[in-house]
Amino acid sequence: MLHFFYTNRWQILTLTLEHLWLVGLAIAIAIIIGVPLGILVSRRAWLRKPVLGGTNVLQTIPSLALFGFLLPAPWLGQRSDRLAIAALVLYALLPIVRNTYTGIMGVDPAVKEAALGMGMTDGELLRHVELPLGMAFILAGVRIATVTAVGVATIAAAVGAGGLGELIFRGLAMVNNELILAGAIPAALLAIIADVAIGAVENRLRVPK
């Protein structure tokens, strides 16, 4: 087993990096889209149902099917890594949007009122009060999204996007447990590391009461 890992270390490493790249880019894009979307939803009550409902529906689509759905999309379908990243972004949106929204809405109304009463504009309220106080919540969303994405990204190998899923799929086809584990163990480790690391940042940002 260890011997197998050792002889294939370069391939495992390359695929791990590829996996990391897929997940990292997808999460970055999901944050860029999701956090502003969460902020928008917190400002416009009528957007809450369509946006949160929409992201919720995305979450319920089985991942393999989602990859399939995106295949005929014009620009996305051309390259498998684009396709995989797009699917991962869609999956990551829900926890990020929802936690951004919950984080902002969860800020003590008394503190918000104090901020408004002191003459903060909406933007200042967001920047000085709501985002910093909701940050732990927002990061919790990012953490959930990242851990999920590490798992889902293994399926991206089904559309040829690479990553650790490649070893798993190959192992399944060849009925080779060592190969499956060579994909599954690094993927699990990635998920755990991401979970612990983001969790640590989250704890540092949590505001003491």
Binding site: V111, E113, A114, G119, V129, L133
Partner: peptide, 21 residues
């Protein structure tokens, strides 16, 4: 202008409403 008005008025609140962060 509500921002100008509020900034020209001091506001002390129950439980002080300080920013915890």
């Amino acid at each position: 202008d509500k921002i100008a008005l509020r900034r020209s008025i001091g506001w002390v609140i129950q439980e002080s409403g300080l920013f915890p962060h």
